[in-house]
Design a protein around this nucleic acid. Structure first.
Length: 297
DNA sequence: CTCGATCCCTGGACGC
DNA sequence: TGCGTCCAGGGATCGA
């Protein structure tokens, strides 16, 4: 499931692989999940791929209808791609038969095709004019690797929602999904159902550092491959070997050996250590006990 | 504001 | 072997 580290990995791979190439033609498969499939055929052929970027979980291919430095007056559009759950965007030799679930193939000028495959069709493909990009992305929150500690603590600290729901909310932070939310919360020793506003500043700051540490480590290992994810060369990532809680229900915590548990928070499976990440209820109990001790002592 | 339910979709796991 | 059922989840949307 492509989250920030996986999308960043794909973006880096594509940047090296297809920057400077020209799109000659577009072939489409199933288009029922696309907002405007005709726009892909109408606007993309003839464009050069100038740059590949990541924005949250979106891939951004910057296009130019004229080639070269200082090409002015040319229409500048972008191909925006969201991989959803099972999307892949990988260049293939054009001669290689297109596999199942190939819903878009962008014919390049070097004998290859950039192919979008997506088993579940939860992904998204859109052509966006450069001047409309700002609006297209206007609903998205800050990049978790760019936000400052102060901004992070400020924004989460004034929300009463469950902290995991906020980490997953792309309007708050862009790019975090279920895997990295759980891994970050475990590292910060915070239960996913705790109310963000009730977390002490120090814990929020710890979560901020955990989120960044986890995301950076995952990018270094080229993302997590659970079932479908592959990078721009069709290769899986390595970070799934470093998962501490995600999909480890019943297995022992790397900190304290307590069996990892799974609960549903924000409608998603959430893995946590019941001892390292005490639930909001236990949190209160623990605080009361501490107070009693203080009084007794 | 926040939450849960529902839908989109396919394939893999599991029970019989 | 095959069939039915459940589950996975990013995100939009809707009602409470």
């Amino acid at each position: 499931m492509p989250e920030l580290p996986e999308v960043e990995t794909v973006a880096r791979g594509l940047r090296a692989a297809i920057t400077g190439r020209r799109i000659l033609a577009v072939h489409l498969g199933k288009t029922d999940f696309m907002e405007d499939p005709a726009a892909l055929k109408r606007f993309l052929p003839g464009n050069w791929i100038e740059a590949v970027e990541r924005f949250g979980k979106f891939l951004l291919l910057r296009l130019n209808s004229a080639n070269g430095v200082g090409a002015t007056g040319a229409a500048r559009r972008c191909l925006v791609v969201h991989l959803g759950m099972t999307g892949r965007l990988v260049p293939h030799p054009a001669a290689e038969p297109r596999g199942m679930h190939t819903h878009a193939a962008f014919v390049l000028d070097d004998g290859r095709e950039l192919r979008y495959t997506d088993i579940r069709r939860f992904g998204r493909l859109a052509v966006v004019a450069e001047e409309s990009l700002h609006e297209f992305f206007s609903e998205l929150g800050a990049d978790p690797l760019e936000i400052t500690e102060e901004q992070f603590c400020g924004q989460l600290g004034e929300r009463r929602a469950m902290v995991k729901a906020l980490l997953l909310d792309q309007h708050v932070l862009r790019g975090i999904g279920n895997i990295y939310a759980d891994e970050s919360l475990w590292r910060a020793r915070i239960h996913p159902a705790r109310r963000a506003a009730r977390l002490p500043r120090q814990q929020l700051a710890g979560l901020y550092r955990s989120v960044q540490a986890v995301l950076r480590a995952a990018i270094r290992l080229r993302g997590s491959s659970i079932s479908d994810f592959v990078d721009a060369r069709g290769e899986p990532g390595e970070y799934q070997r470093r998962h501490r809680v995600y999909q480890r229900e019943g297995k022992s915590c790397f900190h304290c050996r307590t069996p990892i548990r799974r609960v549903i928070v924000a409608g998603r499976s959430s893995y946590f250590c019941p001892r390292c990440q005490p639930s909001p209820r236990r949190q209160k109990t623990a605080r009361r006990k501490t107070r009693q001790k203080e009084v007794a002592g």
